[in-house]
Design a protein around this nucleic acid. Structure first.
Length: 290
DNA sequence: AATAAGGACAACCGCTGTGAG
DNA sequence: CCTCACAGCGGTTGTCCTTAT
């Protein structure tokens, strides 16, 4: 039953590769290919490495036409746009950048690009409408950090008027922008104390009602609210989403967090033109009721 | 000059989907 | 149909190097 064991874990070397090991691996693959069997490869070459380690070394370092460092502005823009659009799907992002590996892009993003962009935001935020951020004093600990980061970076990218943007979901861009405006507006209202709120107040019921969100402990309690049924369901269309967001009063920590997560999952299947049109309708005749 | 702190990057870890046996 | 190795992927860690104090 099953396959043979892959390798003797106790007898494999770990840590940095030596030039000799690199040479052995590269020479063999150049001559014979990988044979679609990484596990058998190290034994054939006489390397005391796990096949998995060999594969990684080859893919990330030894493979021909691999570029290291020296990311161009255009590559930066592509990475940012795709990250904002699809998140940390490094292999997909790498597929758009010939010669770049997913590992390289991931490292570059985590160590430099992210900081570079957020740094630019902080510099420019004094003269523009602020994007909510922890450093700006807005308590966002309940938000999805990934979603928030992507929102921030999206706004940053927009502010740079990036001509190379590959962000292929204008609807998501549009909605995220509207959501940020809503959150901004909320943040700037000195009469609102969001610290202990679970959700945003319902329109016209600011003092008495907490808004339910899927997965929240408040869901059951708030099924009596007019829109609670919709919010408690798994919303499947953009119209549902917008109606719900509108009903929620436009913004708030929890619904923004929830929305960000929803958008992440759902936006890929939405029709961009329809999304923009509908969101314009919603936001066009609706202002946040605070 | 010594060393602590932080940055950059290579490599490993662990999870998931797939398919061989 | 079940088990488990494999391949691939994203997250995390380890190590080396540079900079600041």
């Amino acid at each position: 039953m099953g396959r043979a064991p892959c390798c003797d874990k106790a007898n494999v070397k770990k840590g940095p590769w030596s030039p000799e090991e690199d040479f052995k691996l590269k020479s063999y693959i150049d001559q014979y290919g990988t044979g679609n069997n990484w596990i058998a490869l190290p034994q054939k070459i006489g390397l005391k490495r796990c096949g998995k380690s060999c594969r990684l070394r080859w893919l990330n370092y030894l493979r021909p036409n691999i570029k290291h460092g020296g990311f161009t502005e255009e590559e930066d823009n592509i990475i940012c746009s795709l990250y904002i659009s699809i998140g940390s799907k490094w292999s997909i992002i790498a597929a758009q950048l010939p010669g770049r590996t997913d590992n390289d892009i991931k490292n570059y993003w985590n160590t430099r690009l992210k900081k570079k962009l957020l740094g630019q935001h902080r510099k420019s935020s004094s003269s523009h409408a602020p994007i909510p951020a922890v450093e700006d004093g807005f308590d966002l600990h309940n938000l999805s950090s990934s979603a928030l980061e992507r929102l921030q970076l999206h706004m940053q990218l927009q502010s740079l008027q990036n001509p190379f943007s590959l962000c292929n979901n204008p609807a998501l861009n549009h909605l995220q922008h509207k959501m940020l405006e809503s959150l901004d507006s909320l943040n700037q209202n000195p009469h609102l104390n969001l610290t202990n709120q679970i959700g945003a107040p319902a329109l016209g019921q600011e003092d008495s009602v907490k808004i339910p969100f899927p997965g929240s402990e408040m869901v059951e309690q708030n099924k009596s609210c007019g829109f609670a049924a919709a919010a408690g369901e798994n919303l499947k269309t953009l119209e549902d989403e917008l109606d719900c967001f509108k009903e929620m009063g436009g913004a708030g920590r929890e619904n923004l967090a929830w929305w960000c997560n929803e958008l992440e999952v759902k936006s890929s299947s939405w029709d961009s033109t329809a999304v923009i049109h509908q969101s314009e309708q919603v936001y066009g005749d609706y202002s946040i009721g605070f």
